[in-house]
């Protein structure tokens, strides 16, 4: 045989290695087709198609602008930024985060008919929604552009930093996806818990209010502790990147980034530790 042969050993303890990069590279095409399947299937047989990726966040932005911006009178911490712009700069990345976490969290439960029949690196399953929801995210950028054009708000030069908060979102969503999918396939309780926990997570993230509000009310120690919640640095960082005349909050971005790495690597560790039981419990 021309192929370089390598023996595979299956033992009760196999699968504890943290990351099998070589194997993931070999299965990269599978990830690609799983993502492609998610993207093409999602809006099939709908009338509005990809418009749905726009409608959901748009309605949220409108409601937030009325309830929090107009009725509750929350003021953006950036001079000259209208509340709808402020709100959309948080709702858009948040929507990507919450969609990918909930899809990733339930991914193993939904694909049990596949992974109980064929072997492939299981980690591809919770990773798929992180990529497929990114397509929705890119589409929803249209709203952002639309709102900014409507309110004539031009982003500043900090916009080049937008990739850093985006990276925090991807890392956090993947890490939480690893944790939740591995837990939910064993304990279905997590499936129910996710449906109400993820929306609640939004209210403690600086989506409807500026993170500096926490700094004002609770002081700098608690403000930095608050950033341990990765979506604090991610959402605030994403929004500030578009703001004119406001420094990037590097302190909370750093804290959030480190915290997201902890979630990510513990997530991989737990997922890899449990994956050999998935076929038995699913």
């Amino acid at each position: 045989m021309s192929r370089k042969e390598k023996s595979i050993v299956i033992e009760p303890t196999t699968g504890s290695k943290i990351f099998n990069i070589e194997e993931l590279v070999r299965y990269k095409d599978l990830l690609y087709y799983m993502v492609l399947r998610d993207v093409t299937v999602l809006y099939k047989q709908t009338i509005l198609g990809f418009t749905w990726a726009v409608i959901t966040p748009l309605f949220q932005i409108i409601i937030f602008s009325v309830v929090f911006g107009y009725l509750a009178g929350i003021k953006p911490d950036v001079a000259g930024m209208p509340y709808p712009v402020f709100s959309s700069l948080a709702v858009i990345p948040w929507t990507y985060f919450s969609n990918s976490v909930s899809a990733s969290g339930s991914s193993l439960i939904n694909t049990s008919s596949i992974f109980t029949k064929v072997y492939f690196p299981r980690i591809i399953i919770p990773l798929t929604p992180i990529f497929s929801k990114f397509v929705d995210f890119l589409i929803s950028i249209i709203i952002l552009i639309g709102i900014m054009v409507y309110f004539k708000y031009l982003p500043g030069t900090n916009v080049v930093f937008v990739l850093i908060p985006l990276l925090i979102i991807i890392i956090t969503a993947s890490g939480m996806g690893f944790w939740l999918s591995a837990l939910a396939v064993q304990y279905r309780d997590f499936k129910f818990a996710m449906t109400f926990m993820i929306p609640l997570l939004m209210y403690i993230a600086p989506v409807t209010f500026p993170a500096t509000l926490v700094l004002e009310k609770f002081g700098s120690t608690l403000y930095h502790a608050y950033a341990l919640y990765p979506m604090v640095g991610a959402v605030e960082g994403f929004r500030t990147a578009f703001a004119v005349g406001k420094e990037m909050p590097w302190d909370i971005i750093t804290i959030s980034f480190l915290s997201s790495l902890i979630i990510f690597f513990t997530g991989i560790w737990y997922f890899r530790k449990m994956e050999k039981y998935f076929a038995d419990v699913a």
Partner: peptide, 28 residues
């Protein structure tokens, strides 16, 4: 066990080369 879908409680399998398992056609 041979197709690495589930893991053994005890014992060991060693295999050489690429394995494809068809426990069901049309998976996925």
């Amino acid at each position: 066990l041979l197709s690495r879908i589930t893991y053994p409680s005890t014992g060991r399998i060693e295999s050489m080369g690429k394995i494809a398992s068809l426990l069901e056609v049309g998976t996925g």
